[in-house]
């Protein structure tokens, strides 16, 4: 999807974690995996938080999660937007992300799924939205 009026800031991307951002471009949510001790972790980091190894690989996550909390940001933005904290389904970490939903649609701990936005030729960002289960 494209969202020309999206408010975002350029994240400070370093070589060690650039694969995460390349993953977003390819519509994948990647987490780090230590090739030495096997620890899967998020946010992505250049050194394993468990054993400090620099031998880090990548695994794709489900892109599902639950909404831990949210706020509607009115400050320092031309247009209010929803910002949420997502507990990743794999339980390994949390994301802070823009949420595509109206405030009244949101409930604590509701299922969420990731989507992707190309904000420029060089940068693709994540955005999360409620994962509405089909009614039985």
């Amino acid at each position: 999807m494209s969202w020309p009026e999206i408010v975002y800031l350029q994240p400070k991307i370093t070589g060690l974690t650039s694969k995460f951002w390349e993953g977003l471009k390819n519509r994948k949510l990647l987490a780090s995996k230590c090739n030495d001790c096997g620890e899967r972790f998020f946010p992505p980091r250049g050194l394993c938080p468990k054993c400090l190894s620099e031998n880090i690989g990548w695994v794709e996550l489900s892109g599902k999660g639950r909404l831990h909390s949210w706020t509607e940001v009115h400050y320092l933005t031309p247009k209010p937007y929803m910002l949420g904290v997502i507990d990743l389904a794999e339980g390994i970490g949390r994301m802070v992300s823009r949420i595509e939903a109206k405030q009244e649609e949101l409930e604590m701990d509701m299922p969420m799924r990731i989507d992707f936005i190309d904000v420029s030729d060089k940068l693709t960002l994540f955005i999360w939205k409620p994962d509405k289960l089909p009614r039985p």
Partner: peptide
């Protein structure tokens, strides 16, 4: 912005208020 992890940076436009707001909402 460097006070946050890079994955938090893109949407953390409003300083630190958003974090305390999420804590309050929870």
């Amino acid at each position: 912005l460097e006070i946050y992890d890079p994955t938090v940076q893109p949407y953390a436009v409003a300083g630190v208020i958003w974090a305390y707001a999420c804590s309050g909402r929870r």
